[in-house]
Amino acid sequence: MQLELDNLRCAYDDTPVLSGLSFTLAEKQIGCLLGPSGCGKTTALRAIAGFEPVTGGQILLDGEVISRAGYRLPAARRRMGMVFQDYALLPHLNALDNVAFGLHAWPARQRRARAREYLGLVGLKGSDRRFPHELSGGQQQRVALARALAPEPRLVLMDEPFASLDVDMRGHLLREVRDILRRCGATALMVTHNQLEAFAIGDRIGVLEGGRLAQWDTPYNLYHRPVSRFTASFVGDGVLLSGQMRPDGRVATEIGDLNGRLSGSPSPDGRVQVLLRPDDIVHDDRAGMTAVVHDKAFRGADILYTLALASGARVLALVPSHHNHALGESIGIRLETDHLVVFPETS
């Protein structure tokens, strides 16, 4: 089912929370809404689920308006499966009955068979009779997912579904949840503040800032072709370095002329800020240019160096960790850019 948000607005007591949100999530795609806390992503999800009224614009599911100002298709009739951050399993029902809860219109026997099938799908075969408090966090999450999927909802909504799990469990479960959603052919929308989760699961990611959609794009484009400073700084590591556009399309900076396919636009006088990701700067002992190690973060396979340039500006460099340099040391760097993202110089 295709989900479409058209200029959606939400407000709590005259304080706008969402001001004009528009995007389209195609059938069988997994979308993510990504943003810092308070950006309105959860409100958007709850409005889609039918828990919050909207004050403007509309929400369409397969072309049918389900929310607009003054109208809300009741949540109970939207046929959307929701996975909550705390899972919200019903403590008086066992795993099977929790999954069967949404199948109330089915005959008893089919209901149980179906619930069992979905418990199996999420890898919990044989846990039918266990109660939520007897399940681990990850198992509870799977039951919640099975419960949301069992009635074959038109849309699956997930509100920070991995936030309550520990980090080890998270990565494992992320892939599994993505595979299950694909296998069911579900259209799903997840809300998260964690970009790695969004990258791992989303076909399309929307970055929200202060109730507005900064960018709705693929994970690759979000990282490599951010259209706003906010997206550039919120997604991935990187710094903005001042430079000057040249007539030949190259960007002159204090670490040399940068080369690559260009996106974004400069100021009228040609001054720009160019986005440099840590992988754009390569450490090379033979390189002529040097920078001083200002800070370093050991990450196992590699080290993320913060390097100070002659002007005092800082850049980041991701370097294999056997190149272990001390703070204050000058190291050789080389540029390796194949596309350039530029923004107009602000001052």
Partner: peptide
């Protein structure tokens, strides 16, 4: 102990209003 999310989970699964009261609130 009955969280808002439990009520919303029930609602989104198609069980709202007094049916929810009977199937979620009363047993708990």
């Amino acid at each position: 102990r009955i969280t808002r999310a439990m009520e919303e989970a029930s609602t989104s699964l198609g069980i709202g209003g007094w049916r929810m009261f009977g199937r979620v609130h009363l047993p708990l």
